[in-house]
Structures are given as structure tokens and as C-alpha cells.
Simulated scan of single mutants.
Amino acid sequence: MELKSFIFDMDGVIIDSEPFWRQAQISILSKYKVTISIEDCIQYTMGKRIDDVAFTWCQLHSLQLDPKVLEQEIINAVTTLIAEKGEAKPGLYELLDFLKENKYQIALATSSSLPIINAVFKRLSIAQYFEVVCSADEEVYGKPHPAVYLKAAKKLKVSPSNCIVLEDSVTGLIAAKAAAMKTVVIPEDPSDPRFRLADAIFTSMFEVIEFLQ
């Protein structure tokens, strides 16, 4: 079986945006007298869709606040940070060029909303590489549900089993494996035993290129 459809997650894979998400959550919640840590963000919200993120904090801290308000504030803060400071993860352009040169179909399947996707594409100038862009915002369920990955395969007109996914979070890994896709990871914490579910674990996209060669 030849895997010629490559699907990227975005946050923490394409762009080092996880710190922006954490900074935004910590900053916005502090306005509502709620103190959270980076570790809290990793534990409770990493890899999740923004509505799940907002709902989680409202529930955990009994906030008398419409989660939609919190959701929009976090999105606005992250979009601003990406536009000002966003940087591609090491090996991104090299991997994208390798995939193009070797006739891979390239897709994006992310938990992030379209404003975030647009901000990343603009900041990194990479929109032209992607044939298909899927946001979990458009699905009933976000990751770890496989819906966004299954939608990407459908738009690419390929079987999920013919797709290879690059992820960085346990939430995303579960989603991609549930979609029956070959899944490789570049985790923030490679020692987390849950990443053993992946088909391969790497430290950078340069290693992904070697794996595909």
C-alpha cells in the first residue's frame, strides 16, 4: 500500500503556537480572577477545539460566563500572537517541498478555527501547499473524535488507510488512529507512554523526511 496523502495537524506541528494558546488562556482567564498554569493547559485543553477549551475552563472553575465569550477572546488573542510572533517549526518548508516534489496530496486537519488557520497561512506563506483544509469547527465533534481526519480523507478522495498523519498531541493521535490512518508524532513530551500508540515517534520534521524516503 502506497501512502501518498499526507495530513498535517497545525498547532504544535506546523507552527510553534502551543505557547500562544497557553499564554492566551492564562491571560484571558486572569481577567476573570482564575489562575491556571501551563501544566493545566497541557493537561486539560491541549489539542482540543476552542469550544471544548472554553467549556472546560468554565466547568472546572464554575465561571458564570458564556463560554462563547471566552472562546472569542482566546481566538482573538492567539490570532494576534501568531501574526506578531509566529514561527514555522524546524523542517516545515523542507518537508512541504519534499511532499510536493514526490507527488503527495497535502491536507490540513486541525482543531483550530478558520481565523487561526488563516493567520498561520498568512504568517508562514504556506497556503499554496495545501489541497485540502479542514477545521474541526465544521464538525459536530472535535478531536479526539476522528471526524476532522475522515473529512480530510473524503475531500482528498482517498481511503483513510492510505493517509499518513503528523501529530503532536495525544488528543490528535487518538483522533487519527481512530480514523484508521498511519500516524507519526513529534511530541512535546516523548516520554509520555500514550505516544506508543503512534506508528513512529520523531524529534523533528527532518526525521519525517528520512522516514518517508
Rank of each mutant, 00 (worst) to 15 (best):
A176L: 10
S169A: 13
A24P: 13
V78G: 06
Q23K: 14
D168V: 04
S111K: 05
L124E: 11
A180V: 12
V184I: 15
L96A: 05
C58P: 11
L29P: 03
A147P: 07
L108Y: 05
V184R: 01
P90Y: 01
S113I: 06
A88Y: 09
K182M: 14
G91C: 13
E101N: 15
S113Y: 10
K89M: 14
K68R: 12
D9I: 00
H61W: 13
L156G: 09
D189I: 10
A119C: 10
L92N: 09
K48V: 02
V69F: 10
L124C: 07
V158Q: 12
C163N: 02
W21R: 02
Q213D: 13
Y32E: 10
A77M: 10
Q105A: 13
A88L: 11
V13R: 01
I174P: 01
A147I: 04
F55T: 13
K48R: 15
V170H: 02
V208A: 14
M46T: 05
T45D: 08
I50P: 00
A109K: 05
F130T: 06
Q25F: 01
I26L: 04
V120P: 01
L65N: 08
S37K: 07
V78E: 08
Q23H: 13
F98D: 05
K103R: 14
K103C: 11
W57R: 08
K177C: 07
S204L: 03
I38M: 05
L212C: 11
T110N: 08
T110V: 09
S30N: 14
D52F: 01
R22Q: 14
T80N: 08
R196W: 01
E94I: 10
V69W: 06
P144Q: 07
N162R: 12
V165Q: 05
Y44N: 07
A153G: 07
E39T: 14
D51P: 04
L92D: 10
S113R: 09
P146I: 06
C163L: 03
G172R: 06
V133E: 09
D16T: 00
L63M: 13
Q72N: 15
V78P: 06
L95Q: 06
K177P: 03
H61T: 01
L60I: 12
G47Q: 03
S62I: 02
L70G: 02
T110R: 04
F121P: 04
H145Q: 12
C41M: 07
Q213N: 13
T110H: 07
I36A: 01
A178W: 10
S113T: 14
T171Y: 07
G47C: 08
E207G: 10
P144E: 08
W57F: 14
I106A: 12
A200K: 14
L166I: 15
L166K: 03
L29A: 09
Q43K: 15
F202Q: 10
D52Y: 04
L197D: 10
D16Y: 06
E18Q: 10
V34M: 09
S204M: 05
I117S: 03
V133Y: 05
F8P: 00
F206W: 08
Y104Q: 07
P115S: 08
P19I: 03
R123K: 15
E210S: 13
P160R: 11
I7L: 11
G142F: 01
I26P: 06
I186P: 01
F202W: 08
V53Y: 00
P193F: 02
D66P: 10
M181G: 01
